[in-house]
Simulated scan of single mutants.
Amino acid sequence: MFPLPIDEKKLLGIYHCGYHSERSYGATSYLITHPEGNILVDSPRFTEILARNIERLGGVRYMFLTHKSSSPDVSYRDDVGDHEKWSNRLKCDRILHSGDVEISTANVEIQLHGKGTWFLGTDFVLIHTPGHTEGSVCLYHKSLKVLFTGDRLARSEQSLLEIYELYNRQSVSLQLRSVRKLLDIGFLWILPGHRRRIAFRDNQEKISAV
């Protein structure tokens, strides 16, 4: 049944890919369908049935990888997961910040350099948010006000926004500066790599959750 629409009324064209992989700590992958080209955000576990279902929705132009693994265990690849299998199957261009490029991702088609910001077409903004890893990047869908955060932000048990402090490869203070930068963006939805998605009524509710 995957990809499944997340909210057909409020988030038209955004899907949960399912097929979470143990190798990526169960990270969530999303599919964005868009007239300028579909985007696969991070890597689900590769399966042929999911690939066929994604093709029925128009295939994928870009595979955006939010970051590399923050684990020292090389058998875990966090949100990059089965990126090469997906790239070969869907013939899409992968995007990853150069600060997170390693041997397993050395052949990604598009490497982001520097501090950004970068743009995909007219509707998507890529924002450099180091702290979790050196090359962590968030994707902002302007028209729907959705922020895809990878491992930068999540919802705590108290419904507050929190960072993954225990899993940072860089300093907590650097990640906090990145979060402050994100708060200036007009997003009202957070679709994270882990834990539940977050919807805010307005900007004031978002600020109060920090």
Rank of each mutant, 00 (worst) to 15 (best):
V125C: 09
I103K: 13
S143Q: 11
I95A: 00
K115W: 00
G116F: 00
F124K: 12
L120G: 06
H128K: 10
R89A: 15
A106C: 09
I127P: 02
S156W: 00
A106W: 01
T117Y: 00
H97M: 00
L90D: 06
I110R: 10
I103Y: 13
G99K: 09
L153W: 10
P130N: 03
K145R: 15
L90G: 07
K91H: 14
L90M: 15
V101Y: 02
Q158K: 13
L153A: 09
E102T: 11
H97S: 04
L126W: 04
L96Y: 05
G150A: 12
D100M: 01
I103C: 04
R155H: 02
T129W: 03
D100F: 00
F124T: 10
G114K: 01
D100S: 10
Y140E: 08
V108K: 06
N88I: 05
N107T: 14
L144Y: 05
V125N: 05
L160V: 09
L153E: 11
T105N: 08
S156H: 06
E157C: 03
L96I: 13
K142A: 14
V108F: 02
L147W: 11
N107H: 09
C92Q: 08
E157I: 10
L161Y: 02
T122P: 00
H97G: 05
F124I: 07
T149V: 13
P130W: 04
L96V: 07
A154G: 10
S143W: 01
V108R: 05
E134M: 00
C138E: 03
